[in-house]
Amino acid sequence: MLSMRRATVRAAGRTLVDALDLDVPERGLVGLVGPNGAGKSTVLRAAAGLQPLCAGDATLAGRPLARWPRAERARRLGYLPQSFDSHWDLTVAELLALALAPPSAELLARCEIDALLARRFATLSGGERARALLARTLAHDPPLLLADEPAAHLDIPHQHRLMALLAERARLRAVVVVLHDLHLAAAWCDRVALLAGGRLLADGPPSLVLTEDLLARAYGHRVQRVDARPGAFFTSAAGGHEPVDDAHGPGRSRAA
């Protein structure tokens, strides 16, 4: 679906993305992880056509990204920015009216916002907002969804609810999501691309990419990975807590 070869982005004298290769298939959930400043958001923005490449190329559905007419490219992509703020006081219905196609009732039900249509967007909770934005972005059924930290600022249940939606979508379409939280990446992504310093360190299934060695190289910090029995996870904290049994994920790691 999306393919980047030796993609390079430079700005203000710094190299944000350095000769990166990335392939996103037509189906599946790809997670981009890495420390701050690794270039994850930049890669996503380049894929969305917001950031031109200084070197290398990117193709979308076989055609070079730059050759796509704006309107057509917009229909192929769905982009969820890191921070979103509407300047006007829209209701959810009005926000959805600003999608590239009217959202189906099914989509609204899936995103669980069909009861929220008359509410003002500004009064929604974080989780509700994230889902409303997702519904808007998916309304025109784009073959490729690019989401930049969609689960940031959400509490745990909402994070997983959102990731579940994305995973469900990924069964039929391509989804690339930038994640800060390695647990979410480990729990939900089919593939993970680990970035550091603008370079791609590893790209593959989470169990192979989120190794202690690679993570230590990426984050510059010793990381201990603790594999729980299938179906359990816990969130780590500096002092170390007791693991709490919960629903998801094959593996997770904690900082040592």
Binding site: R45, A48, G49, L50, A74, L77, Y79, P81, F84, D85, S86, H87, L98
Partner: peptide, 8 residues
């Protein structure tokens, strides 16, 4: 909705 969203 924002400059970037509009562009996308």
């Amino acid at each position: 909705l924002g400059d970037e969203v509009a562009r996308t």
